[in-house]
Every structure is written in structure tokens, then in C-alpha cells.
């Protein structure tokens, strides 16, 4: 079982680039890439909140649980 990060799907829907999103939420592009590729071990509430705010979505739209 795993948690899938659907950040790239949501970014495509909102037509926003990685660089722009990273700048808006105040993290580096490298960290955004870690998040997109599912290599992250944890995500801070502050980062999740900023992502939801900028992408105008809910946490459930970004994170998905798979058996």
C-alpha cells in the first residue's frame, strides 16, 4: 500500500508550471520535484495548505491511498 501524489495531474489541470508553482508556495523546484515523483517521506501541513490554496483544490485531490 502507498500514498500516490497526484500533483502533476492537478498542475496540468490548472495549467501551471513547476517553476511557477514552486515560487508561489515558497519551496525550491528540486523539492517540488521530490514531491511530484513520490520520493518524499512526509509533507508539512503548511506545504499542503499552500498547494491547495494555489491549485484551488482539496488535499484529497493531491493525495491518493492505494492498496
Amino acid at each position: 500500500m502507498e500514498i500516490i501524489v497526484n500533483l502533476d495531474v492537478m498542475m496540468a489541470k490548472r495549467k501551471i508550471s513547476g517553476g511557477e508553482l514552486a515560487e508561489r508556495i515558497g519551496i525550491t523546484q528540486a523539492n517540488l520535484s521530490v514531491l511530484k515523483t513520490g520520493k518524499a517521506k512526509a509533507i508539512r501541513f503548511s506545504t499542503l495548505m499552500a498547494l491547495c490554496h494555489e491549485l484551488n483544490c482539496q488535499p484529497g485531490d493531491l493525495l491518493e491511498f492505494r492498496e
Binding site: 519551496i27 523539492n31 517540488l32 521530490v34 514531491l35 520520493k39 518524499a40 517521506k41 512526509a42 509533507i43 508539512r44 506545504t47
Partner: peptide
């Protein structure tokens, strides 16, 4: 530290 490095 390794865990913290991968906390975004």
C-alpha cells in the same frame, strides 16, 4: 536527518 531531508 535523512527523513527530514525528504520532508517537503
Amino acid at each position: 536527518r535523512s527523513e527530514l531531508d525528504l520532508t517537503i
